[in-house]
Simulated scan of single mutants.
Amino acid sequence: MSEHDIFLHDGQTEYRLTVEKGEPWGESPWLFTEKDTKDEFDFLGEGSRQTRFEKGWVLAHNSQKYEIKDNGNCRAIGNIPSFNRILYELNGTVDFLSSENERYRISCHADKDSTETYSIVGKVLLEALNSYPIYVGFPQINISNTEKSRGQYRTQWRSLHCQGKSWNGTANDCVGPVWIRLVDTTNGIEVFRRKIYVLPKSFKLDRMISAEGLPGKYRFYGLGKAKVTTENGETITEIEHADIIEVSCPSIKNTSLPQLLVKLYWPTHGQLTISLPYPQRGAMLQLAGKTLQYDDYVSLDRMGGLRLLLQDPIGSESYWIEAEPLMANHTSSQSI
């Protein structure tokens, strides 16, 4: 599923805005209920959910098994091979269990539908060009529209690199690609889960933009035991006893900047890739997380989503953007 998110940030911390049906659907079971219109269904949510309707329809991963609870019933009625999911029709209460015994509970004929919404909030690396947020330090899971006490939930995480290991309840040593989840401590039911990418809380970076043909540089602080590599073999220097790693990027004869892909690898936590602007004077246009190349086309209704990055070591220069509107049987050029 594609990710469509809206964020607000205050210059230090980025806050995800809750968008109806805007979250990408994850690995948990997906619950649907029937609309008033025959043979049409509403997506109610994922994970552990309840509905006031007598029946529900769940798409669960092929590897997940079900367990009947409280006079419930459940039967498989189809599958979607492209999603690796089986479609179940159910009533009453049914638990779905993953191959590692994580438990999700679906309840029908409840007093009301689930209204809880979940979002992940934390400090993000604003310099990164990745299409997904990279968190600096362990983020928090926010719960909205719930009558339950926040104290009955526990946030846990587990590295994607170490499937099968136990979940961690503290933020210590949380780095790399990880699962983050919310568990109801009263019954052990998992209510929410997401895959996220985390840098150490101590992480910082400095960028030195190249000038007059000299190399541009990045300095990374607080990476601990991470091994750093780049896709194109830029020079990497480790400054001993200072926990500093320097990446030197040679000057290139191109004002349309490429991306610098920095790969961080922790032996016990796997690999995280950061996409950064090449540290050289120039410009870059991005749309939906992808860097545009010279002569690429952008439709007018997507112009509001363009992201322009300008880099200059002086910081007081003026720039021209040349845009060429293209219309049927007519082409004109305009500088902005």
Rank of each mutant, 00 (worst) to 15 (best):
H241Q: 14
K65N: 09
L308H: 04
P139M: 05
G72Y: 06
G151F: 00
Q152Y: 04
G188C: 02
S202R: 08
R302C: 09
L182E: 03
E89R: 09
N329T: 10
T237S: 06
F43K: 05
R193Q: 12
E116F: 02
P139G: 08
V94S: 08
L59V: 05
K225F: 13
K38T: 09
G304K: 04
I143N: 04
E34F: 02
E102M: 15
P279G: 06
P200A: 06
F203A: 04
T117M: 06
E100D: 15
L214V: 03
S202I: 04
Y294G: 01
T235S: 13
P24G: 09
G282Q: 03
N145C: 11
C108Y: 01
C162P: 00
V262A: 01
S119L: 10
K227M: 13
R307G: 02
Q152T: 10
H61N: 08
G216I: 07
Y88C: 01
D39E: 15
E240Q: 11
K204M: 03
W25C: 03
S107N: 07
K35D: 11
G224P: 08
T155A: 12
K112I: 02
G11M: 11
T37I: 15
R105V: 03
A288W: 09
I336H: 01
V262L: 14
I106K: 07
A60I: 01
E317R: 10
N145E: 08
V198H: 13
L160K: 06
E317F: 04
E246R: 09
G92F: 04
T229S: 15
K38D: 08
E27L: 11
E127Q: 15
R181I: 09
D70I: 06
I180M: 15
D95T: 01
G289Y: 11
Q64P: 06
E3T: 12
P313D: 07
P139C: 10
H109C: 04
E238Y: 03
N84I: 02
V183I: 11
Y153T: 01
I143G: 02
T146P: 09
I209G: 03
M327C: 08
K201P: 00
A283I: 05
R158I: 09
N142D: 10
R150D: 12
L160C: 03
E89W: 01
L31H: 00
L17Y: 07
R307V: 11
T155S: 08
T185V: 12
I68L: 14
T93L: 00
A171G: 12
T51P: 10
G26Y: 08
G137I: 04
S251V: 03
M1F: 10
H61T: 07
D243G: 15
F53T: 01
S131L: 05
P215N: 12
W266Y: 15
I321Q: 02
L182R: 00
T155G: 11
T18G: 10
N232A: 02
D39L: 14
L326V: 14
D10Y: 05
P325G: 09
G270I: 00
G151M: 09
C162W: 07
D312C: 07
D10P: 06
Y153S: 00
G289S: 06
E102Q: 15
F53S: 03
K123Q: 15
I244Y: 08
G47N: 14
R307Q: 13
P215E: 12
N91E: 05
L90V: 00
D312T: 04
